[in-house]
Nucleic acid binder design. Structure first.
Lengths: 249, 249
DNA sequence: CGCATACTTGAGCGAAATCAAGGCCTGTGG
DNA sequence: CCACAGGCCTTGATTTCGCTCAAGTATGCG
């Protein structure tokens, strides 16, 4: 794993930009890159078919309904994936960060929209080209199947949250699931950076911004979390937070 | 494994039972079997590593948290997949029928429980064995990745439903999504057979049984659907039902 | 400084949950 | 045969959690 990463030192600049290993090798399931599955030579080849891009904050880089030509691997920053109803209601189906893939949940056309929450650096693959790469590097396909399986597990957990949990349970569950921001403080699992707005949080958890705000305030008042002004949240009592995530108290 | 019991002659018989092609080749995305991806010889080999079983109504054949040793392909009947909270609340993440797979959303341990709604005939694979089969038949892995992608799309749609739709919108959406029962009347897309109870429906749609019942009654009263006593429902006005699925009226 | 955006907090309302009662089957046993 | 029990479902009455509407605060930016 780390061998692969070290091996990148000698290869092209494009590679290190294009194919991000999980920033925290052992820290969380969401930090899944392509590196783990491939040897150095394979990575170099893969990098040659990828195109690295920067997406500014707020920019939509995948639109629901568009022909699904590309497949992405996030390098830096955070994006939100969502589906909209005609009247404006929105459901964010997930947030993706460094190492995550965008485009697995697509048939001929994208079934979701992807929008950058902050500046996003990503790597773009041609889906058809990627398919042909599979035959050369079966390990890559294996990897993607594993990633897809993992995303299905996450999705099922989110269904449980959306279908059956109360507002405070949803907030608590989210805070527990949200990876500690690798960029700022990888070692302190209790320091969270939430790059998204309250509106995004509500659209992800099936709540309104007011309810999100109230639930956070409730947890703050009980000294379970501390809320900073800079999108930062600190978990003060993980045990009680975990209790809120399922019991609701 | 089943090699000894079935032998060569049996394998072709076993095949038709074990590996179900989509019952309606062109009719719906949920009728995805393994056949489409493989040639006859490959299927015969695959059948030799599979074990066909009958699961009685109400029997749990996958338990959340158990070590994920097997992978299933449903042959006949319907099963529900769900997650529970400690206090008894339940979220059904999906119903699976003929041609569907069970076990994609699993890491080392199953992340869900699977229970037969009626008598289920299924085909069981050893996950480790299946992995080794991938190297021999890459098309199979390709197939599973496609299936997983498709399930992710479905899952995201369900998140939108659970997070943002009203009760009547959920019911209407469900009725439109529910495949026409292939076993009874493959040609009449408006005749639905719902093998599950109202409680299951509620657990799938994030509602109580009372709300499910009321929503169905509301649609019945407007002559949009007809509700039979034998788990049968007929869609009378698909256009208005579709309007209810998004607009709520 | 004014204005915009993001967030918080309060008051009242409403959709769905909860509580409660009754109807309709099917199976079982007298 | 009827009587009765237990699912399963429907319908009504009441409650509640989260939504809507509204006001106010904080922050940032031209």
């Amino acid at each position: 794993m780390s061998d692969h990463r070290n091996g990148l030192a000698g290869s092209s600049i494009n590679l290190s930009v294009a194919i991000v290993p999980g920033l925290c090798g052992g820290c969380g399931a969401r930090h899944i890159g392509l590196c783990d599955a491939l040897a150095d030579e394979d990575l170099q080849f893969l990098a040659s078919v990828a195109k690295s891009t920067t997406v500014p904050k707020g920019r939509i880089f995948v639109a629901e309904g568009d022909e699904a030509r590309h497949f992405f691997n996030i390098n830096r920053g955070t994006a939100k994936l969502y589906k909209d109803l005609p009247d404006g209601r929105r459901q964010i189906t997930g947030f993706v960060g460094a190492g995550d893939f965008v485009g697995l949940a697509a048939a001929d056309h994208y079934a979701f929209t992807a929008e950058a929450i902050d500046e996003v650096r990503l790597c773009r693959f041609d889906r058809v080209e990627l398919r042909s790469v599979f035959t050369t590097f079966p390990a890559l396909e294996r990897r993607l199947l594993d990633v897809a399986s993992h995303e299905l597990i996450i999705a099922q957990g989110q269904m449980l949250l959306l279908g059956r949990k109360s507002a405070i349970e949803r907030i608590a569950s989210f805070l527990l699931d949200w990876r500690s921001s690798a960029e700022t403080c990888p070692n302190d699992v209790n320091a969270l950076v939430l790059p998204m707005t309250r509106a995004d949080l509500g659209d992800f958890l099936g709540l309104t911004i007011e309810t999100v705000s109230r639930a956070l305030s409730a947890l703050k008042q009980r000294n379970i979390i501390a809320v900073g002004k800079d999108h930062g949240i600190r978990i003060l009592d993980r045990g009680r937070l975990a209790k809120f995530a399922t019991d609701g108290s």
